[in-house]
């Protein structure tokens, strides 16, 4: 009983914070594919700015933008593509590209089916999943396959790129196309097969301060930290590409 009350009270605490002078709660909306990297970056940022607590909300870029349009209390927005970021250009400061990402073929650990190229994805004996064309990863995957002239018959068009990784790691699918960062995060459960540079698509990740932020200074500091060399190093550790022309 006491435990239950404690549990009920617990999540209320951060929301009620800010009473202490000088303390800032910074809310960062970030694309789901940034989950691991941003969590690590948040810790480093807080170590350097002990007066700032960073709270992340990870979700699909579209959902984040939709929430922001309904006046969700975000200070910083980081999306997985510039197109989505552009739809809320009027709500943020000009965005800056802080990372890139590219796609890889996700295969079962040890690559038992011997998949070496995009052409293999057309094999009849393989069960392939892709992300749905409605989400960026799915759109990129389709572009790559079209450019390579490969016709794939996916059994499912997952609602997110994480779904692709899950299906491959559970063995329900033999292969799928996902971000290299997702493959890197799931290494051990799955393996990645590189897609040659000339066929690959580079996704760009923009970040911006929300205009309506009440913690604009802290938000700016966080964005600067992500753009700093220290921030880039962490992102690279998680498999992201540096920003700029590839």
């Amino acid at each position: 009983m006491l435990l239950a009350i404690a549990l009920l009270a617990l999540p209320l605490a951060p929301g009620c914070g800010g009473g202490e002078a000088g303390r800032v709660d910074l809310t960062v909306f970030a694309a789901a594919s940034l989950t691991d990297a941003f969590t690590a970056l948040g810790e480093e940022f807080t170590a350097a700015h002990p007066d700032i607590t960073v709270v992340f909300s990870f979700a699909g870029s579209q959902q984040l933008v939709a929430q922001l349009q309904q006046a969700a209390p975000a200070d910083v927005l980081a999306t997985a593509d510039t197109k989505t970021m552009d739809t809320v250009a009027d709500l943020t400061t000009p965005s800056e590209i802080f990372a890139g990402n590219k796609l890889a073929i996700a295969v079962a650990a040890g690559n038992p089916d011997g998949i070496t190229s995009l052409d293999d994805l057309a094999r009849e004996d393989l069960t392939v999943v892709l992300a749905a064309p409605e989400v960026p990863a799915g759109k990129y995957a389709q572009e790559i396959l079209d450019d390579a002239g490969v016709t794939v018959r996916p059994v499912s068009l997952e609602e997110s790129v994480k779904g692709v990784v899950t299906k491959v790691s559970l063995g329900e699918a033999d292969a799928g196309i996902a971000y290299v960062t997702d493959v890197a995060a799931a290494l051990g459960e799955i393996d990645g097969v590189e897609i040659p540079e000339e066929m690959n698509v580079v996704a760009t990740y923009p970040i911006a301060v929300v205009t309506a932020s009440e913690n604009a200074d802290a938000a700016r500091a966080f964005v600067d930290f992500i753009l700093s060399s220290q921030g880039r190093q962490v992102l690279q550790d998680y498999g992201f590409l540096p920003p700029g022309p590839s």
Partner: peptide, 18 residues
């Protein structure tokens, strides 16, 4: 999963359309 005609029911279609 989500494949139009095979497993994409209305709620899935709604979610993706969103």
């Amino acid at each position: 999963g989500n494949l139009p005609g095979a497993t994409q029911t209305m709620p899935l279609a709604v979610y993706l359309a969103l």
